[in-house]
Nucleic acid binder design. Structure first.
Lengths: 154, 154
DNA sequence: TCTCTTCTGCGAACGTTTCGCAACAAGATC
DNA sequence: GATCTTGTTGCGAAACGTTCGCAGAAGAGA
């Protein structure tokens, strides 16, 4: 499951701002999440953390992920269960999440927000609902796999 | 967590069409899911199933839910974890899921599809991605809670 | 540096989900 | 309707992911 996304910065700073104590383990985990090239589940986070510091305990990883999730700094996703039952963690880039999950190559695209913003306005005027966090997930076929498919069937 | 949604029909028929063997337990579970007045997690499904037929085993509930999920007849949702870590099951109404989860009253609204349809077209032309299943979840404040809040703060 | 408080490692415990098996029953065939 | 085949069920044990309670370690502020 490859991952492509825009720039992101300052998880450690945001943690500090929320009053979290900056321990070595937490800095390590923040770094790891920021530098992740793909979506990670709890076990993968643990494995990568261990590779960087063998003394990090599993429970610490869970506790930290939960804390970050509760503070809204990190989100937990299932990516439509296209690649199994795992849950993935990613830094919350803003209030808006968009994931395009390809059911063929399992790739996940995260397009820019640009024209999605008016969605919030629309739901507010149409339903009276004021959205704070928006998550959009689409499972389907990415352009590359569409091309591959039509070529092979030609 | 109350639930409001439109009409839905024929889960048993769709199961049959997919070649599933229609056992008593499966009919019971299908009925239960169709008649659910709120989103149910696996344990709640099991409890309700037991109330209808005391001999239904937990494993059967899990197996059936998984099978339905794999066939795309049922979806598993976390509803943005607004009410905890549980996962909820619901009949897949179409290719489009929209949930507006109120962080105040925990209510879940499922508005009609109407103007969401063009979303698919937009993502196809903008990203070359062909969506098959679309899930939109928004956490925020529903109109009732907005009213309640502004009234009490007035 | 000292103190206060939070965080960590540890390993046991917990709750949920799956497993392997023998018995059972749905649906097809005659 | 009787028979056969194969998928499904109940069961209890097992596996899995996650959380717990504790004692000791380590941030952050004075």
């Amino acid at each position: 499951m490859k991952r492509r996304r825009g720039a992101e910065d300052g998880l450690v700073e945001r943690m500090k701002a929320r009053g979290l104590r900056l321990t070595g383990q937490r800095k390590l985990l923040a770094e790891l999440l920021e530098g992740a090239d793909e979506h990670l589940d709890a076990e993968s986070v643990y494995q990568r953390a261990r590779a960087m510091d063998g003394s990090v305990h599993r429970a610490t990883v869970y506790r930290t992920l939960n804390k970050l999730k509760k503070l809204g700094l990190v989100d937990e996703l299932d990516l439509m269960h296209v690649s199994g039952e795992r849950h993935y963690y990613e830094i919350r880039p803003s209030t808006l999440h968009i994931h395009l999950v390809c059911t063929t190559c399992k790739g996940v695209d995260e397009p820019g927000e640009t024209f999605w913003e008016d969605l919030k306005r629309r739901v507010e005027s149409a339903n009276g609902f004021r959205p704070e966090v928006v998550r959009i997930e689409m499972a389907g076929t990415c352009s590359a796999c569409q091309g591959r498919r039509s070529r092979s069937s030609a």
